[in-house]
């Protein structure tokens, strides 16, 4: 499991726009870099990121080798109702990780 840092409020007023900041540990090996023996290291990157709010997708991103190692992605969403936000990263070599956070909306 890759280490993940998620920053978002635990609670919010209904209708408020909340900021979500995510970091995940991943080398984002670009597929363009020569290794020690001179041959190119195979690409190993995260290609997709999704955020769902109570099951409904609210944000999605397609990543390329031009995203830095240990990808940082920050975006916003409207606090509509109490429930669960789910974050999924997918990539090369069957990489797949999902994290969830609950939010209380009042």
């Amino acid at each position: 499991m890759a280490r993940v840092l998620l920053n978002l409020p635990r609670s919010a007023a209904k209708g408020a726009v909340i900021e979500i900041r995510t970091l995940i540990m991943h080398p984002m090996e670009s597929g363009f870099r020569p290794g020690m023996n001179g041959s190119i290291l195979p690409r190993d990157i995260i290609t997709r990121f999704r955020c769902s709010y109570n099951g409904e997708e609210v944000f999605r991103a397609e990543l390329s080798p031009a995203i830095a190692a240990n990808p940082f992605i920050s975006f916003t969403t409207v606090a509509t109702e109490s429930g669960t936000l789910s974050f999924t990263w997918e990539g090369d070599n069957d990489f797949r990780q999902t994290e969830t956070r609950d939010i209380a909306v009042t």
Partner: peptide, 12 residues
């Protein structure tokens, strides 16, 4: 549902 049209990241 994003509320604001914003995106931040770190690129190479």
């Amino acid at each position: 549902r994003a509320g604001r049209a914003e995106l931040a990241t770190h690129m190479r």
